[in-house]
Write a protein that binds this DNA or RNA. Sequence first.
DNA 1: GTCTATAAGACGATAGAC
DNA 2: GTCTATCGTCTTATAGAC
Lengths: 202, 202
Amino acid sequence: MIMSERTSTDSAFATETGDERPRDTRARIQEIALRLFTEQGYEATSLREIAEELGVTKAALYYHFKTKEDIVASMMIDRVTFMDSLIDWVRDQPRTPEVRREAIRRYADWLHAGSQGQIMRFMERNQTALKGHQTMGQMREKMLALMGFFVDTDDSLTVRLKRTLAVFALHAVWFMMPDVTDTERADTSLKVALELIDASDG
Amino acid sequence: MIMSERTSTDSAFATETGDERPRDTRARIQEIALRLFTEQGYEATSLREIAEELGVTKAALYYHFKTKEDIVASMMIDRVTFMDSLIDWVRDQPRTPEVRREAIRRYADWLHAGSQGQIMRFMERNQTALKGHQTMGQMREKMLALMGFFVDTDDSLTVRLKRTLAVFALHAVWFMMPDVTDTERADTSLKVALELIDASDG
DNA sequence: GTCTATAAGACGATAGAC
DNA sequence: GTCTATCGTCTTATAGAC
Protein backbone atom coordinates (compact mmCIF):
# COMPACT_ATOMS: atom_id res chain seq x y z
CA MET A 1 0.00 0.00 0.00
CA ILE A 2 1.32 3.38 -1.04
CA MET A 3 -0.43 5.20 1.77
CA SER A 4 0.75 2.93 4.59
CA GLU A 5 1.66 4.55 7.87
CA ARG A 6 5.36 5.20 8.27
CA THR A 7 7.65 7.57 10.01
CA SER A 8 9.80 9.93 8.06
CA THR A 9 12.86 8.39 6.50
CA ASP A 10 16.21 9.74 5.46
CA SER A 11 16.47 7.83 2.20
CA ALA A 12 13.32 9.07 0.57
CA PHE A 13 13.98 7.12 -2.60
CA ALA A 14 14.60 3.73 -1.04
CA THR A 15 11.98 1.09 -1.65
CA GLU A 16 11.76 -2.55 -0.69
CA THR A 17 13.27 -3.53 -4.04
CA GLY A 18 16.49 -1.76 -3.18
CA ASP A 19 18.21 0.94 -5.21
CA GLU A 20 15.46 2.14 -7.53
CA ARG A 21 15.33 5.33 -9.50
CA PRO A 22 13.11 8.00 -7.97
CA ARG A 23 9.49 7.80 -9.02
CA ASP A 24 7.74 10.78 -10.53
CA THR A 25 8.41 13.62 -8.14
CA ARG A 26 5.06 15.25 -8.68
CA ALA A 27 3.26 12.09 -7.62
CA ARG A 28 5.50 11.68 -4.60
CA ILE A 29 4.72 15.21 -3.45
CA GLN A 30 1.02 14.39 -3.68
CA GLU A 31 1.47 11.22 -1.65
CA ILE A 32 3.49 12.83 1.10
CA ALA A 33 1.27 15.89 1.24
CA LEU A 34 -1.90 13.81 1.41
CA ARG A 35 -0.52 11.78 4.30
CA LEU A 36 0.75 14.77 6.27
CA PHE A 37 -2.37 16.84 5.60
CA THR A 38 -4.48 13.96 6.90
CA GLU A 39 -2.34 13.18 9.94
CA GLN A 40 -1.52 16.70 11.10
CA GLY A 41 -4.02 18.90 9.32
CA TYR A 42 -3.69 21.06 6.24
CA GLU A 43 -2.73 24.32 7.94
CA ALA A 44 -0.48 22.60 10.44
CA THR A 45 1.56 21.03 7.64
CA SER A 46 4.11 23.35 6.07
CA LEU A 47 5.73 23.02 2.68
CA ARG A 48 9.03 22.75 4.54
CA GLU A 49 7.86 19.50 6.16
CA ILE A 50 6.77 18.06 2.84
CA ALA A 51 10.02 19.05 1.18
CA GLU A 52 12.10 17.64 4.03
CA GLU A 53 10.41 14.27 3.86
CA LEU A 54 10.82 14.24 0.10
CA GLY A 55 14.49 15.04 0.55
CA VAL A 56 14.51 18.34 -1.36
CA THR A 57 14.15 21.98 -0.46
CA LYS A 58 10.97 23.99 -0.25
CA ALA A 59 11.82 25.85 -3.42
CA ALA A 60 11.79 22.64 -5.44
CA LEU A 61 8.13 22.13 -4.63
CA TYR A 62 7.32 25.40 -6.32
CA TYR A 63 8.62 24.01 -9.57
CA HIS A 64 5.96 21.29 -9.46
CA PHE A 65 3.09 23.18 -7.87
CA LYS A 66 2.38 26.88 -8.10
CA THR A 67 0.92 27.12 -4.59
CA LYS A 68 0.09 24.98 -1.59
CA GLU A 69 -3.54 25.10 -2.63
CA ASP A 70 -2.55 23.69 -6.01
CA ILE A 71 -1.32 20.50 -4.36
CA VAL A 72 -4.78 19.97 -2.90
CA ALA A 73 -6.48 20.79 -6.19
CA SER A 74 -4.36 18.27 -8.04
CA MET A 75 -5.45 15.53 -5.66
CA MET A 76 -9.10 16.29 -6.30
CA ILE A 77 -9.14 16.07 -10.09
CA ASP A 78 -10.10 12.40 -10.29
CA ARG A 79 -12.81 12.94 -7.74
CA VAL A 80 -14.33 15.89 -9.56
CA THR A 81 -14.33 13.97 -12.83
CA PHE A 82 -16.03 10.97 -11.27
CA MET A 83 -18.67 13.03 -9.49
CA ASP A 84 -19.53 14.77 -12.75
CA SER A 85 -20.01 11.46 -14.53
CA LEU A 86 -22.12 10.05 -11.71
CA ILE A 87 -24.33 13.12 -11.61
CA ASP A 88 -24.70 13.04 -15.40
CA TRP A 89 -25.83 9.45 -15.19
CA VAL A 90 -28.28 9.90 -12.35
CA ARG A 91 -29.78 13.02 -13.91
CA ASP A 92 -31.20 10.98 -16.78
CA GLN A 93 -32.72 8.33 -14.52
CA PRO A 94 -36.17 8.21 -12.94
CA ARG A 95 -36.35 8.84 -9.20
CA THR A 96 -36.89 5.25 -8.17
CA PRO A 97 -35.54 3.24 -5.22
CA GLU A 98 -33.55 1.04 -7.60
CA VAL A 99 -31.83 4.05 -9.18
CA ARG A 100 -30.87 5.28 -5.75
CA ARG A 101 -29.44 1.88 -4.93
CA GLU A 102 -27.50 1.77 -8.17
CA ALA A 103 -26.14 5.26 -7.58
CA ILE A 104 -24.96 4.24 -4.12
CA ARG A 105 -23.36 1.12 -5.59
CA ARG A 106 -21.49 3.11 -8.23
CA TYR A 107 -20.37 5.67 -5.71
CA ALA A 108 -19.22 2.97 -3.28
CA ASP A 109 -17.43 0.99 -5.99
CA TRP A 110 -15.43 4.01 -7.04
CA LEU A 111 -14.76 5.06 -3.46
CA HIS A 112 -13.23 1.75 -2.51
CA ALA A 113 -11.10 1.45 -5.60
CA GLY A 114 -7.81 3.32 -5.61
CA SER A 115 -6.66 5.63 -2.86
CA GLN A 116 -9.96 7.48 -2.49
CA GLY A 117 -10.30 6.46 1.13
CA GLN A 118 -7.30 8.48 2.14
CA ILE A 119 -8.61 11.46 0.23
CA MET A 120 -11.99 11.17 1.93
CA ARG A 121 -10.33 11.17 5.35
CA PHE A 122 -8.32 14.20 4.35
CA MET A 123 -11.38 16.09 3.15
CA GLU A 124 -13.46 15.20 6.15
CA ARG A 125 -10.84 16.17 8.67
CA ASN A 126 -10.00 19.47 7.03
CA GLN A 127 -13.39 20.78 6.00
CA THR A 128 -13.05 24.19 7.55
CA ALA A 129 -9.44 24.71 6.60
CA LEU A 130 -10.29 23.97 2.97
CA LYS A 131 -13.55 25.91 2.87
CA GLY A 132 -12.04 28.83 1.00
CA HIS A 133 -10.41 26.65 -1.65
CA GLN A 134 -12.05 26.78 -5.02
CA THR A 135 -11.87 23.06 -5.68
CA MET A 136 -13.53 22.23 -2.39
CA GLY A 137 -16.40 24.55 -3.18
CA GLN A 138 -16.92 22.62 -6.42
CA MET A 139 -16.86 19.31 -4.56
CA ARG A 140 -19.40 20.56 -2.05
CA GLU A 141 -21.75 21.61 -4.85
CA LYS A 142 -21.45 18.24 -6.52
CA MET A 143 -22.15 16.35 -3.31
CA LEU A 144 -25.23 18.51 -2.74
CA ALA A 145 -26.33 17.85 -6.31
CA LEU A 146 -26.04 14.11 -5.77
CA MET A 147 -27.90 14.31 -2.47
CA GLY A 148 -30.62 16.24 -4.26
CA PHE A 149 -31.44 13.10 -6.24
CA PHE A 150 -31.64 11.03 -3.08
CA VAL A 151 -34.31 13.03 -1.26
CA ASP A 152 -37.66 14.27 -2.53
CA THR A 153 -39.42 17.42 -1.45
CA ASP A 154 -42.19 15.48 0.28
CA ASP A 155 -39.94 13.10 2.20
CA SER A 156 -40.11 13.21 5.98
CA LEU A 157 -37.14 14.51 7.96
CA THR A 158 -36.45 10.99 9.15
CA VAL A 159 -36.13 9.70 5.60
CA ARG A 160 -33.97 12.65 4.65
CA LEU A 161 -31.58 12.03 7.51
CA LYS A 162 -31.34 8.31 6.78
CA ARG A 163 -30.63 8.79 3.08
CA THR A 164 -28.00 11.39 3.89
CA LEU A 165 -26.46 9.03 6.42
CA ALA A 166 -26.24 6.41 3.67
CA VAL A 167 -23.63 8.43 1.82
CA PHE A 168 -22.00 9.28 5.07
CA ALA A 169 -21.71 5.63 6.07
CA LEU A 170 -19.57 5.06 2.99
CA HIS A 171 -17.26 7.90 3.93
CA ALA A 172 -17.13 7.34 7.66
CA VAL A 173 -16.31 3.65 7.54
CA TRP A 174 -12.61 4.45 7.19
CA PHE A 175 -12.28 6.08 10.55
CA MET A 176 -15.04 4.10 12.21
CA MET A 177 -13.47 0.77 11.25
CA PRO A 178 -9.78 1.36 10.60
CA ASP A 179 -8.69 -2.14 11.56
CA VAL A 180 -10.64 -4.35 9.17
CA THR A 181 -9.63 -5.51 5.70
CA ASP A 182 -10.46 -3.42 2.65
CA THR A 183 -12.95 -6.02 1.50
CA GLU A 184 -14.72 -6.15 4.86
CA ARG A 185 -14.87 -2.37 4.93
CA ALA A 186 -16.31 -2.15 1.43
CA ASP A 187 -18.86 -4.93 1.98
CA THR A 188 -20.05 -3.71 5.36
CA SER A 189 -20.39 -0.07 4.42
CA LEU A 190 -22.20 -0.86 1.17
CA LYS A 191 -24.65 -3.12 2.97
CA VAL A 192 -25.46 -0.49 5.60
CA ALA A 193 -25.61 2.29 3.02
CA LEU A 194 -28.09 0.36 0.89
CA GLU A 195 -30.32 -0.26 3.90
CA LEU A 196 -30.28 3.45 4.72
CA ILE A 197 -30.91 4.60 1.16
CA ASP A 198 -33.95 2.30 1.03
CA ALA A 199 -35.62 4.23 3.82
CA SER A 200 -39.05 5.52 2.85
CA ASP A 201 -42.25 6.89 4.37
CA GLY A 202 -44.40 4.30 2.70
CA MET B 1 -29.33 33.44 19.84
CA ILE B 2 -25.84 34.12 21.07
CA MET B 3 -24.20 32.30 18.19
CA SER B 4 -26.12 34.01 15.39
CA GLU B 5 -24.27 34.83 12.20
CA ARG B 6 -23.04 38.40 12.04
CA THR B 7 -20.26 40.32 10.48
CA SER B 8 -17.66 41.99 12.62
CA THR B 9 -18.84 45.13 14.29
CA ASP B 10 -17.10 48.21 15.56
CA SER B 11 -19.11 48.61 18.75
CA ALA B 12 -18.44 45.23 20.27
CA PHE B 13 -20.43 46.07 23.39
CA ALA B 14 -23.60 47.22 21.71
CA THR B 15 -26.62 44.99 22.11
CA GLU B 16 -30.21 45.30 21.05
CA THR B 17 -31.08 46.82 24.45
CA GLY B 18 -28.84 49.78 23.85
CA ASP B 19 -25.92 50.94 25.97
CA GLU B 20 -25.25 47.94 28.19
CA ARG B 21 -22.18 47.22 30.21
CA PRO B 22 -19.85 44.69 28.60
CA ARG B 23 -20.66 41.09 29.40
CA ASP B 24 -18.03 38.87 30.94
CA THR B 25 -15.06 39.22 28.63
CA ARG B 26 -13.90 35.66 29.14
CA ALA B 27 -17.25 34.34 27.93
CA ARG B 28 -17.24 36.67 24.96
CA ILE B 29 -13.82 35.46 23.92
CA GLN B 30 -15.12 31.89 24.03
CA GLU B 31 -18.13 32.80 21.91
CA ILE B 32 -16.16 34.64 19.25
CA ALA B 33 -13.41 32.02 19.18
CA LEU B 34 -15.90 29.17 18.85
CA ARG B 35 -17.62 30.85 15.94
CA LEU B 36 -14.43 31.74 14.09
CA PHE B 37 -12.81 28.36 14.77
CA THR B 38 -15.90 26.69 13.34
CA GLU B 39 -16.28 28.96 10.33
CA GLN B 40 -12.64 29.33 9.31
CA GLY B 41 -10.84 26.53 11.09
CA TYR B 42 -8.76 26.52 14.25
CA GLU B 43 -5.34 27.05 12.68
CA ALA B 44 -6.66 29.56 10.19
CA THR B 45 -8.05 31.74 12.96
CA SER B 46 -5.46 33.94 14.65
CA LEU B 47 -5.68 35.52 18.07
CA ARG B 48 -5.45 38.87 16.29
CA GLU B 49 -8.76 38.18 14.54
CA ILE B 50 -10.47 37.22 17.77
CA ALA B 51 -9.10 40.27 19.54
CA GLU B 52 -10.12 42.57 16.69
CA GLU B 53 -13.69 41.36 16.70
CA LEU B 54 -13.81 41.70 20.47
CA GLY B 55 -12.48 45.22 20.13
CA VAL B 56 -9.29 44.76 22.11
CA THR B 57 -5.67 43.91 21.34
CA LYS B 58 -4.12 40.49 21.14
CA ALA B 59 -2.30 41.02 24.42
CA ALA B 60 -5.57 41.44 26.30
CA LEU B 61 -6.56 37.89 25.42
CA TYR B 62 -3.54 36.61 27.26
CA TYR B 63 -4.89 38.04 30.50
CA HIS B 64 -7.92 35.73 30.19
CA PHE B 65 -6.33 32.68 28.60
CA LYS B 66 -2.77 31.49 28.96
CA THR B 67 -2.57 30.09 25.42
CA LYS B 68 -4.69 29.60 22.33
CA GLU B 69 -5.08 25.96 23.26
CA ASP B 70 -6.50 27.06 26.61
CA ILE B 71 -9.42 28.74 24.88
CA VAL B 72 -10.35 25.42 23.32
CA ALA B 73 -9.87 23.55 26.58
CA SER B 74 -12.17 25.97 28.40
CA MET B 75 -14.94 25.28 25.90
CA MET B 76 -14.66 21.53 26.49
CA ILE B 77 -15.01 21.46 30.27
CA ASP B 78 -18.77 20.92 30.34
CA ARG B 79 -18.47 18.25 27.74
CA VAL B 80 -15.77 16.34 29.62
CA THR B 81 -17.79 16.50 32.82
CA PHE B 82 -20.91 15.20 31.14
CA MET B 83 -19.13 12.37 29.35
CA ASP B 84 -17.60 11.24 32.63
CA SER B 85 -20.98 11.12 34.30
CA LEU B 86 -22.56 9.25 31.40
CA ILE B 87 -19.77 6.69 31.31
CA ASP B 88 -20.00 6.25 35.09
CA TRP B 89 -23.68 5.54 34.76
CA VAL B 90 -23.44 3.12 31.87
CA ARG B 91 -20.56 1.24 33.47
CA ASP B 92 -22.84 -0.01 36.24
CA GLN B 93 -25.56 -1.15 33.86
CA PRO B 94 -26.05 -4.53 32.18
CA ARG B 95 -25.32 -4.66 28.46
CA THR B 96 -28.91 -4.77 27.29
CA PRO B 97 -30.66 -3.13 24.35
CA GLU B 98 -32.69 -0.95 26.72
CA VAL B 99 -29.55 0.37 28.43
CA ARG B 100 -28.10 1.25 25.05
CA ARG B 101 -31.29 3.10 24.20
CA GLU B 102 -31.27 4.97 27.47
CA ALA B 103 -27.61 5.92 27.03
CA ILE B 104 -28.40 7.30 23.58
CA ARG B 105 -31.36 9.21 25.00
CA ARG B 106 -29.25 10.77 27.75
CA TYR B 107 -26.50 11.66 25.32
CA ALA B 108 -28.96 13.16 22.86
CA ASP B 109 -30.79 15.11 25.57
CA TRP B 110 -27.61 16.72 26.73
CA LEU B 111 -26.37 17.33 23.21
CA HIS B 112 -29.45 19.27 22.21
CA ALA B 113 -29.57 21.37 25.35
CA GLY B 114 -27.33 24.42 25.47
CA SER B 115 -24.82 25.34 22.83
CA GLN B 116 -23.37 21.87 22.39
CA GLY B 117 -24.31 21.77 18.73
CA GLN B 118 -21.89 24.52 17.87
CA ILE B 119 -19.15 22.78 19.83
CA MET B 120 -19.82 19.50 18.03
CA ARG B 121 -19.49 21.22 14.67
CA PHE B 122 -16.27 22.81 15.81
CA MET B 123 -14.80 19.50 16.98
CA GLU B 124 -15.86 17.62 13.90
CA ARG B 125 -14.47 20.14 11.50
CA ASN B 126 -11.14 20.52 13.25
CA GLN B 127 -10.30 16.95 14.20
CA THR B 128 -6.82 16.91 12.78
CA ALA B 129 -5.88 20.39 13.88
CA LEU B 130 -6.85 19.56 17.45
CA LYS B 131 -5.34 16.07 17.51
CA GLY B 132 -2.30 17.16 19.50
CA HIS B 133 -4.35 19.00 22.12
CA GLN B 134 -4.54 17.32 25.47
CA THR B 135 -8.24 17.96 26.00
CA MET B 136 -9.17 16.48 22.66
CA GLY B 137 -7.22 13.35 23.45
CA GLN B 138 -9.31 13.00 26.61
CA MET B 139 -12.53 13.50 24.65
CA ARG B 140 -11.50 10.89 22.13
CA GLU B 141 -10.85 8.37 24.90
CA LYS B 142 -14.21 9.06 26.48
CA MET B 143 -16.05 8.66 23.17
CA LEU B 144 -14.25 5.35 22.59
CA ALA B 145 -15.14 4.25 26.12
CA LEU B 146 -18.80 5.01 25.46
CA MET B 147 -18.72 3.22 22.12
CA GLY B 148 -17.17 0.25 23.89
CA PHE B 149 -20.45 -0.25 25.74
CA PHE B 150 -22.44 -0.13 22.52
CA VAL B 151 -20.70 -2.97 20.68
CA ASP B 152 -19.88 -6.48 21.88
CA THR B 153 -16.93 -8.57 20.84
CA ASP B 154 -19.13 -11.04 18.97
CA ASP B 155 -21.16 -8.47 17.04
CA SER B 156 -20.94 -8.56 13.27
CA LEU B 157 -19.26 -5.72 11.42
CA THR B 158 -22.64 -4.58 10.16
CA VAL B 159 -23.99 -4.20 13.68
CA ARG B 160 -20.83 -2.44 14.79
CA LEU B 161 -21.09 0.09 11.98
CA LYS B 162 -24.77 0.75 12.62
CA ARG B 163 -24.32 1.28 16.35
CA THR B 164 -21.41 3.62 15.67
CA LEU B 165 -23.50 5.48 13.13
CA ALA B 166 -26.16 5.94 15.81
CA VAL B 167 -23.90 8.24 17.79
CA PHE B 168 -22.77 9.84 14.62
CA ALA B 169 -26.33 10.59 13.52
CA LEU B 170 -26.74 12.71 16.65
CA HIS B 171 -23.62 14.67 15.86
CA ALA B 172 -24.05 14.99 12.12
CA VAL B 173 -27.61 16.24 12.16
CA TRP B 174 -26.39 19.81 12.66
CA PHE B 175 -24.62 20.02 9.36
CA MET B 176 -26.87 17.57 7.55
CA MET B 177 -30.02 19.49 8.49
CA PRO B 178 -29.02 23.07 9.24
CA ASP B 179 -32.33 24.60 8.23
CA VAL B 180 -34.84 22.86 10.49
CA THR B 181 -35.97 23.91 13.95
CA ASP B 182 -34.08 22.75 17.03
CA THR B 183 -36.99 20.56 18.03
CA GLU B 184 -37.23 18.90 14.64
CA ARG B 185 -33.50 18.31 14.64
CA ALA B 186 -33.56 16.77 18.11
CA ASP B 187 -36.60 14.57 17.41
CA THR B 188 -35.43 13.34 14.03
CA SER B 189 -31.87 12.54 15.05
CA LEU B 190 -32.97 10.74 18.23
CA LYS B 191 -35.44 8.63 16.30
CA VAL B 192 -32.86 7.58 13.72
CA ALA B 193 -30.18 7.04 16.36
CA LEU B 194 -32.47 4.75 18.37
CA GLU B 195 -33.23 2.69 15.28
CA LEU B 196 -29.53 2.32 14.56
CA ILE B 197 -28.57 1.46 18.14
CA ASP B 198 -31.21 -1.30 18.11
CA ALA B 199 -29.40 -3.12 15.32
CA SER B 200 -28.54 -6.70 16.22
CA ASP B 201 -27.51 -9.99 14.65
CA GLY B 202 -30.42 -11.86 16.18
C1' DG C 1 14.88 20.34 -11.59
C1' DT C 2 17.00 21.63 -7.72
C1' DC C 3 19.73 24.83 -5.19
C1' DT C 4 20.87 29.15 -1.93
C1' DA C 5 19.28 33.23 -0.26
C1' DT C 6 15.93 36.24 0.96
C1' DA C 7 11.83 38.92 0.93
C1' DA C 8 7.72 40.27 3.46
C1' DG C 9 4.84 39.33 6.76
C1' DA C 10 1.93 36.60 10.22
C1' DC C 11 2.03 33.99 14.14
C1' DG C 12 1.94 32.89 19.32
C1' DA C 13 3.59 34.72 23.25
C1' DT C 14 5.82 38.05 26.74
C1' DA C 15 7.45 42.40 29.31
C1' DG C 16 6.29 46.17 31.49
C1' DA C 17 3.69 50.72 31.63
C1' DC C 18 -0.72 52.50 33.00
C1' DG D 1 -7.74 44.61 32.44
C1' DT D 2 -5.94 46.61 28.64
C1' DC D 3 -2.27 48.91 26.35
C1' DT D 4 2.28 49.47 23.30
C1' DA D 5 6.20 47.40 21.82
C1' DT D 6 8.72 43.67 20.81
C1' DC D 7 10.85 38.91 20.54
C1' DG D 8 11.83 34.85 18.12
C1' DT D 9 10.13 31.85 14.98
C1' DC D 10 7.68 30.25 11.34
C1' DT D 11 5.26 30.80 7.07
C1' DT D 12 4.30 31.13 1.79
C1' DA D 13 6.49 32.54 -2.00
C1' DT D 14 10.13 34.45 -5.34
C1' DA D 15 14.76 35.58 -7.72
C1' DG D 16 18.43 33.95 -9.80
C1' DA D 17 22.61 30.69 -9.93
C1' DC D 18 23.78 26.08 -11.41
